[in-house]
């Protein structure tokens, strides 16, 4: 597996740090991991840390939007931090950023 995800918590926010390249092949694995962790933890919100994602295609849009839909039903918030230029362009092009904002760091994301 060329993709990994690490979890940490800050208050009632789950931080999912994704490491590797995100495409259709790896997105299913990450989705299962994140959904499993959300059920286990009592976190309300989720922040995706993209600082270690070197490549992402449109599979990343599906992954983030899917989590956004689940979490917003329970009044939780979804955010993205530290997306590189390529990743940012894909999120901006798809309009995801209107629902899931991109911040520079975790403190900024949690403040909002």
């Amino acid at each position: 597996m060329v993709l990994k995800v690490k979890f940490s918590n800050k208050g009632n926010t789950l931080i999912a740090s994704i490491i590797g390249e995100m495409d259709h092949h790896t997105a299913d694995y990450i989705r299962d991991k994140i959904d499993g962790e959300m059920i286990k933890s009592s976190s309300k919100n989720i922040v995706f840390d993209f600082s270690k994602v070197g490549f992402m295609d449109s599979s990343g849009i599906g992954l983030v939007m899917g989590r956004y839909k689940n979490i917003s039903k329970l009044n939780g918030k979804t955010a993205i931090i530290k997306a590189n230029e390529q990743v940012r362009r894909i999120f901006e092009m798809s309009g995801v950023v209107k629902l899931v904002p991109i911040y520079d760091n975790i403190d900024e994301a949690i403040r909002s």
């Binding site: 449109s58 599979s59 849009i61 599906g62 992954l63 939007m65 092009m93 798809s94």
Partner: peptide, 8 residues
């Protein structure tokens, strides 16, 4: 959970 953005 596909976004439909591939061709775009």
């Amino acid at each position: 959970e596909r976004s439909g953005m591939g061709f775009t």
